[in-house]
Design a protein around this nucleic acid. Structure first.
Length: 200
DNA sequence: GGTATGATTGACT
DNA sequence: GTCAATCATACCA
C-alpha cells in the first residue's frame, strides 16, 4: 500500500504525527521516519507565510507532492505538501532510521556511522539523493515510495528546531526513544528551570 | 544596485 | 561552546 493524495489532504499537524513510523524510500533507499515538523500558512516560520513565490510554488500545489528547497545555500531539505490544494502547508522530514540501501547512503554521505546517515533534514536529503529535481514530484510514484507504519508508535512532540519565529509552537514530532533523531526532545513534565534567560 | 538572513552542518576552541 | 560555508530570497535605496 502506498500513501498518496488522500492521506496528505488532511490537516498538516495530524499528517506530521501520522508520518512517524512510516517508511520512506527514494529509489529504494531510505528507512523509517522518526522525526517531522509541520509548517502551515499563517505560520511566520513557514516558507509559505509571505505567499506564493517561484521557490515555494510546490507548497501551494496539490497535496501528496514533494517540496524541496535549498537550505543555507548548501543543503537540500525534503517536505511533503499537505492540506487542500493552495493551503501552503507542508511537513519537513527531519530524520529517518536507515533500513534500506545503507551502502548507497554511506557512499553519498561519505560516512559509515549509521546513526548519522539521516539524522537531520540536510543529511537525510543527501543520503537519499534528494535535490531540486524532486521538487513537485508526486509521492505515490517512482522514485518515491511511502508505506504507513505497521503498528502503533509512541510519539513525542516539542518545539521546532532552528527557527526564530513562532518558535514556541510544538509542531515537531518524533518517535519516542529513537536514537536516530536530529536532536533529543526536551524532557516533558517539568517546567523549564531556566525560564529567566531568553534562549535566543 | 547592495545587504542581511536562514526549516543546516561540520570543524574547531 | 563558537563559527564559516554558500546562495536564493527579501528588503531597501
Amino acid at each position: 500500500m502506498l500513501m498518496g493524495g488522500d492521506f496528505f489532504a488532511a490537516d498538516v499537524i495530524s499528517v506530521a504525527r501520522s508520518l512517524i513510523g512510516a517508511t520512506l524510500l527514494v529509489d529504494g533507499v531510505g528507512g523509517e521516519i522518526v522525526e517531522t515538523e509541520a509548517y502551515d500558512r499563517d505560520d511566520p516560520a513557514s516558507h509559505s507565510f509571505p505567499g506564493p513565490t517561484p521557490r515555494n510554488a510546490a507548497m501551494f500545489g496539490p497535496p501528496g507532492h514533494a517540496y524541496v528547497y535549498r537550505s543555507y545555500g548548501i543543503h537540500w531539505c525534503l517536505n511533503f505538501v499537505c492540506g487542500p490544494q493552495g493551503r501552503g502547508a507542508a511537513v519537513l522530514v527531519r530524520a529517518l532510521r536507515p533500513s534500506h540501501g545503507l551502502a548507497s547512503m554511506g557512499e553519498r554521505r561519505g560516512l559509515e556511522e549509521e546513526r548519522l546517515l539521516c539524522a537531520g533534514p540536510g543529511r537525510l536529503a543527501q543520503a537519499l539523493g534528494v535535490s531540486l529535481t524532486h521538487n513537485g514530484m508526486r509521492l505515490d510514484a517512482a522514485p518515491f515510495a511511502l508505506h504507513p507504519a505497521s503498528g502503533g508508535v509512541d510519539i513525542v512532540e516539542g518545539p521546532r528546531i532552528g527557527i526564530t519565529k513562532a518558535a514556541e509552537r510544538p509542531w515537531r514530532f518524533g518517535l519516542a526513544g529513537s536514537r536516530h533523531l536530529s536532536r533529543p526532545f526536551p524532557k516533558p513534565g517539568r517546567l523549564s528551570a531556566r525560564c529567566d534567560r531568553p534562549s535566543r
